[in-house]
Simulated scan of single mutants.
Amino acid sequence: MKILLATSNPHKLEEIQDIMADADVELVTLADIGLDVPEPVEDKDTFEGNSALKAKYYADLAGMMCIADDSGLEVDALGGEPGVKSARYSGKEGPRKIVDIANNRMLMQKMKGVAPSKRDARFVCAMSLCSPDKGDALVQVRGTIEGRILKNDECEDEIHPEKGKGTNGFGYDPLFFVSGLSMTTAELTADEKNRVSHRGAAAREMARQLVLIRKTQMGEKK
């Protein structure tokens, strides 16, 4: 089964490819099929809404089934911010490395003075599968991972706490401490992160759903 994965983020592609390796799914990217179009405006107020919007948009244009995800960070002390605005929290534009630092800096500024017991947060990933010329998403799944935001004095560089701890991740990973593992998601190896991450959980459930879809299709052909 060949499916378009609607992302330009190489980290997401690697994670999802690894997780779906045993699902008998061939994932192709926008570049693989030569689809060069403007990105859709993600104007929904939920992760599920944005993931379905993207999956339908690219499925219709590509004429093939498409998986898209919308992921982000929810911080309880900030009323769920940055939420669906996670990727553009600071309003900064430019290369991912610059944007990530700006977003992290804003987060740590807003969390300044928040008590350790009030720093609970979670990563959320909503993933949708759409078929071309269909209305609603065929499948929607959600994955989460619970943790907390580091305090300034827990970061490797207290003067620049937005750098957090660890270099294996991206985005808010260096600031997100997984209590059960006693490390940030940026300190995990790729395999460890796939096992516990929000995107890993969503991708595993999506892979399970794809297996069921393929079995149904095979049964209908008999």
Results as ranks from 00 to 15, higher is better:
residue 2 K to N: 06
residue 4 L to I: 14
residue 9 N to V: 13
residue 10 P to K: 01
residue 15 E to T: 05
residue 30 L to V: 11
residue 31 A to M: 10
residue 32 D to G: 00
residue 33 I to D: 01
residue 35 L to Y: 10
residue 39 E to V: 12
residue 42 E to R: 03
residue 43 D to T: 08
residue 46 T to F: 13
residue 55 A to M: 13
residue 59 A to N: 09
residue 60 D to G: 11
residue 61 L to W: 02
residue 62 A to D: 01
residue 62 A to Y: 02
residue 62 A to P: 08
residue 69 D to M: 10
residue 70 D to E: 05
residue 77 A to G: 04
residue 77 A to T: 07
residue 90 S to I: 03
residue 91 G to P: 02
residue 95 P to M: 03
residue 95 P to S: 02
residue 107 L to R: 03
residue 107 L to N: 03
residue 108 M to P: 05
residue 108 M to D: 05
residue 120 D to T: 08
residue 120 D to F: 01
residue 126 A to W: 13
residue 127 M to L: 15
residue 138 L to F: 09
residue 142 R to T: 15
residue 143 G to T: 04
residue 144 T to G: 06
residue 146 E to Q: 14
residue 153 D to A: 09
residue 156 E to H: 00
residue 160 H to Q: 02
residue 160 H to E: 04
residue 161 P to M: 13
residue 166 G to S: 07
residue 168 N to D: 05
residue 168 N to T: 06
residue 169 G to L: 08
residue 171 G to Y: 01
residue 172 Y to L: 04
residue 176 F to Y: 04
residue 178 V to E: 08
residue 179 S to V: 04
residue 182 S to E: 12
residue 182 S to A: 12
residue 187 E to Q: 15
residue 188 L to D: 07
residue 190 A to N: 14
residue 193 K to W: 15
residue 213 I to K: 13
residue 219 G to D: 03
residue 220 E to R: 15
residue 221 K to T: 10
